[in-house]
């Protein structure tokens, strides 16, 4: 029973990678999602991430960006539409296949999500120890290599609480790539960082993507940094893609939403005011 399902998974994977060499690694097709039926977070969103590219998904706070990442790594299931990774639908995966899928995927959480009770070294060794039977000597070399890649080999024996925000983010990045994932998802990697740390993390994301041949999805609202490093940008608002394009076309775009977002204007397609009746009407209500 177990062995047959495992071999099925393997063949599906082989077929998938054979067919989809040119087609996108990740594709969301008309996906909707909501925690409750009344309020949907995503309503019919479609996007594609080609192999080896760094794609940003941008939008205001609470527009469902993080939800997209959770759909891709299978923590949530789409209400309608399909989420395909390497040509295989996430919804159709069995539990074993889902775990196999996650093993090839890395995710950087908003505030790093480092394990607070372990040292930096053990944090990065964690996924390696959990998924391989490598001897401790090799694990040590691997961990030091990953730490070196983010420039923090010297912090190996510190606890996460002893790191600055920017360093913690880089350690988390090292942990994310510990198993050389094919696909990396970044959830707000720039949130709460100072300008120097911010551009260090940004450069690292770009360099790692190119050096390790990964496919990356970057969810952020930091437009300036994203324009420096990404290949392609999707703008999401109210659960839909409202604009998309490569860096050059975004910079010259006349789309009102993109203009508002890039220039940081307080009012535009994204309203300053939360929907409410006109002020004069509401004043009048209180007085009989």
């Amino acid at each position: 029973m177990f062995s047959s399902s495992a071999s099925n998974g393997a063949t599906a994977e082989a077929v998938g990678s054979g067919v989809n060499n040119d087609s996108p690694t990740i594709s969301l097709d008309n996906v909707s999602f909501g925690y409750t039926k009344e309020r949907s977070i995503l309503s019919g969103i479609s996007l594609k991430v080609p192999r080896g590219k760094l794609v940003a998904v941008m939008g205001g706070s609470g527009c469902g960006k993080t939800t997209i990442l959770r759909l891709i790594c299978g923590q949530h299931a789409a209400s309608t539409g399909t989420v395909n990774v390497n040509g295989q639908s996430i919804a159709s995966m069995s539990r074993d296949e889902l775990f196999a899928h996650r093993r090839k995927l890395g995710m950087l959480f908003q505030f790093g999500a480092l394990f607070t009770d372990m040292t930096v070294f053990d944090n990065i060794a964690f996924p390696i120890r959990e998924h391989t039977d490598l001897p401790e000597v090799i694990i040590r070399d691997l961990v030091l290599m990953k730490l070196n890649a983010v420039g923090l080999r010297g912090t190996a024996l510190l606890k996460p609480s002893e790191l600055s925000g920017g360093m913690a983010r880089r350690v988390a990045l090292a942990r994310t790539i510990a198993l050389d994932p094919e696909l990396v998802l970044y959830d707000e990697p720039f949130a709460g960082l100072d300008p120097i740390s911010l551009s260090v993390v940004g450069q690292l994301i770009r360099k790692l993507n190119d050096a390790l041949g990964m496919t990356s999805v970057l969810v952020t609202h930091d437009i300036a940094e994203s324009l420096k490093i990404v290949d392609y940008i999707y703008f999401v608002s109210e659960g839909k893609v409202v604009a998309e394009g490569d860096v050059a076309s975004i910079k010259t775009s006349n789309d009102p939403f993109v203009k508002q977002f890039v220039n940081g204007e307080p009012d535009g397609p994204v309203r300053f005011h939360y929907p409410a009746p006109p002020l004069t009407e509401q004043f009048a209500e209180a007085r009989p």
Binding site: Q75, R102, A113, L114, F115, T116, F126, E130
Partner: peptide
């Protein structure tokens, strides 16, 4: 609870642990 709040549990889940 703190591990959940700081997304450490979610991070494990994504690492297929």
């Amino acid at each position: 609870g703190l591990m959940k709040t700081t997304e450490q549990l979610a991070a494990m889940e994504v690492m297929a642990v």
